[in-house]
């Protein structure tokens, strides 16, 4: 009898352990360097998990159509008719650095700032507006569309670049991107570790 009880107890423990393993947070349990097959991606779910950040106005205002930056949560055209310019840093006497500092200023309606405040260059404008998740994913990974970055460099850009990180600290009066930075970084690295799978559409 005792043997049967012991067997049942072991079985229950095993089931509980299995359930715990299955319910684990993916980001916490999967080290970023764990290789996984790209096909094991639930049709790009690992990518779409952090897409809300990419599609947020804090990111899209510099990745939208047109040869100019945008502003606000409604992504209206930058006031004063500011242009992208030949290198993404504005034009002549109306460069980004004319008004933007390398840090936010303390009050609402003052220019936000971060190091190297700029748009993508016109030769590679990285326009995401109008793309499906699949197209966005592919364009992010394509060195011909992402300033020549390989996957490691892309992940570093997404998770460590100071201008990108500004989206989490946009200063007073601006909505930050929706997912906490550490959570976003973990999701990006899980996607990377899985082979950076893209949605099929």
């Amino acid at each position: 009898m005792k043997r049967v009880e012991f067997f049942v107890a072991v079985l229950i423990l095993a089931v509980c352990a299995g359930a715990l393993w299955l319910s684990r947070p993916v980001a916490a349990a999967e080290p970023p360097n764990t290789p996984r097959a790209a096909s094991d991606s639930n049709d790009g779910a690992l990518f779409t998990a952090f897409v809300p950040v990419l599609r947020h106005p804090r990111c899209m205002n510099c990745h939208s159509k047109g040869d100019y930056p945008r502003q606000g949560d409604d992504s209206h055209r930058h006031t004063m008719d500011i242009r992208r310019g030949p290198a993404g840093f504005g034009v002549t006497a109306a460069k980004c650095s004319t008004c933007h500092q390398d840090h936010n200023l303390g009050n609402v309606h003052l220019p936000p700032g971060a190091p190297a405040w700029h748009l993508p260059s016109p030769s590679m404008p990285m326009i995401w507006e109008g793309l499906t998740d699949a197209q966005l994913c592919q364009s992010l990974k394509d060195p011909k569309q992402n300033q020549g970055r390989n996957l490691d460099q892309l992940v570093e850009h997404l998770t460590e670049d100071k201008l990108v990180a500004w989206g989490w600290n946009p200063g007073p009066g601006r909505t930050p991107v929706p997912i906490p930075h550490d959570e976003f970084s973990a999701k990006v690295k899980v996607w990377q570790a899985a082979g950076a799978p893209c949605p099929s559409r």
């Binding site: 004063m80 008719d81 500011i82 242009r83 002549t92 006497a93 004319t98 008004c99």
Partner: peptide
């Protein structure tokens, strides 16, 4: 300095914030 022979458009783009 950057455009020694500016067009009207160059002028508009440069002076837009003044």
């Amino acid at each position: 300095r950057e455009k020694p022979a500016p067009t009207d458009e160059d002028i508009d783009e440069a002076m837009t914030g003044n």
